[in-house]
Computed example of a mutant assay.
Amino acid sequence: MSHTAVSPTTSAAASIGTRPVALVTGGRQGIGRAIVEALADAGFDVAFTARTVDAQSDAIVDTIAARGGRGLAIASDLAALDEHAGVVGQVAEVLGRIDCLVNNAGIGSPVRGDLLALTPENFDRVIDVNLRGTLFFTQAVARWMLDHPPSDGAARSLITVSSVSAAMASPERGDYCVSKAGLAMMNQLFALRLAQSGIGVFEVRPGIIRTEMTSGVAGKYDALIAGGLVPQGRWGEGRDIGSVVTALAGGGFAFASGSVIQADGGLSIQRL
């Protein structure tokens, strides 16, 4: 199921190819929604995936249109590898091109607890979405990009939103940490494979970000931040991640392909 919206002043046929197109996984809420809106503000048409397409998804499409772009919401389960080709094909057909992929979709640990109690079922679910699904979706988009070089020289990028948990261990969330560490290696592999293609490959590692996912532990992190856990002394917001992603998507960091951006207010800096 999908839904499209066209800017009131621009027909879909006329606008294809005139604006860069970004595809964001998990763009219906939280960090993903902030990224979608930031990219639309930066002049991108934006497609995004979500497990379900509903009124909230439609509202985001309308928001993209209000910013002068075209939006496309696609219902898709990232863990379902057989859906990937269809999603990529639909974005290319409706919006005409794909210049930027933002891998944002992911899930947290189904159960937080003792590493020695981690179950294979929960581990497999997290890996299937966060790592396996993301890797093969990136592969599908990269193949499309290589088969369809831009005629206008537009910047192209693959940006993965991982987590400080790619390097900072939380034993009570072992499945999540392993999946994010895997994404870090994935980013390096794609950067090397695509180094001569003109496609920039980047990893963004958010820290403690205020979203629906962290709302249940907000009190815990309020206290930790007040106690100095985050050097900047505040929560991260979705717009903090959106601004980093749009800067990378703009092409100005092409020679820094393979780089990791710590978007965490200093959280991951080692301190004595």
Results as ranks from 00 to 15, higher is better:
Ala65Val: 06
Ala66Thr: 14
Gly68Thr: 09
Gly68Leu: 08
Gly68Asp: 08
Gly69Lys: 05
Arg70Ile: 08
Leu72His: 02
Ile74Val: 15
Ser76Thr: 12
Asp77Thr: 10
Ala79Asp: 01
Leu81Lys: 07
Leu81His: 09
Asp82Ala: 11
Asp82Lys: 04
Ala85Gln: 13
Ala85Arg: 12
Val87Trp: 00
Val88Phe: 09
Val88Ser: 02
Val88Lys: 03
Val88Gly: 00
Gln90Val: 14
Glu93Arg: 12
Glu93Gln: 13
Val94Cys: 14
Gly96Asp: 03
Arg97Lys: 15
Arg97Met: 09
Ile98Trp: 05
Ile98Phe: 02
Asp99Gln: 07
Leu101Cys: 01
Val102Asn: 09
Ala105Arg: 07
Gly106Asp: 00
Gly106Met: 04
Gly108Gln: 05
Ser109Asp: 15
Arg112Thr: 15
Arg112Ala: 14
Gly113Thr: 04
Asp114Ile: 02
Asp114Trp: 01
Asp114Leu: 04
Leu115Gly: 12
Leu115Val: 14
Leu118Cys: 13
Glu121Trp: 05
Phe123Trp: 14
Val126Phe: 04
Val126Lys: 00
Ile127Asp: 07
Asp128Cys: 05
Asn130Gly: 00
Arg132His: 03
Phe136Ile: 06
Thr138Glu: 05
Gln139Tyr: 14
Ala140Gln: 08
Val141Met: 06
Val141Gly: 02
Trp144Leu: 07
Trp144Arg: 10
Met145Gln: 13
Met145Asp: 01
Met145Tyr: 08
Leu146Thr: 15
His148Val: 02
His148Ile: 08
Pro149Ala: 07
Pro149Val: 12
Pro150Leu: 06
Ser151Tyr: 13
Gly153Asp: 04
Ala154Gly: 13
Arg156Met: 01
Val161Asp: 07
Val161Ile: 15
Val161Trp: 12
Val164Cys: 08
Ser165Gly: 15
Ala166Gln: 12
